[in-house]
Amino acid sequence: MTVEQGISLSSFEEFYNAKRPHLVRTLVIVLGNRELGIEAADEAMTRAYQRWADVQTYDNPGGWVYRVAMNWARTKLRRSKRELPSVYVTDKPHIEDPQFEPKLDAALAELPEKYRAPVVLRYYMDWSMEEISDSLGIPKGTVKSRIHRGVAALQKSLGEAT
């Protein structure tokens, strides 16, 4: 089951409570900055609240919020003349979880954002190609291509290229 499925979006509050944690984590990973990710998520959620009558009718309201959050973050970074950071910041030691791979994490951090975003949306959010296409505003074919190239780049970074 995807993050998007199985949730009735009958109210903004329900949407907010269900989506915000995933949205924050996705943004933190894609942006590589915890505070920026949290702030972008809250800003996007506020805008969703303002337009909820329309947003709730969208096929993928979560995708809309993600797109708004990323646009807000990019604008903020552009105004502050900063680049998207390439280093993750995590809150806890990660040695306890065997699935966490430090080398893979480093490779993901080095991946350009245009590849990292669709990879994260695909393999963390479990969104379909259509949902990713909609949220990133790029054709489905481009999404497939970027995911393919992103995964290949990660494998190459780890010396596992096929």
Partner: peptide, 25 residues
């Protein structure tokens, strides 16, 4: 590799603490 990537992202996401911001109508 894709399965590993999925597991890694899930593990990484679980490390990210999300502040409890409650929405109140």
């Amino acid at each position: 590799f894709e399965t590993r990537l999925r597991g890694h992202l899930a593990a990484k996401a679980s490390l990210i603490e999300v502040p409890d911001h409650k929405f109140v109508q």
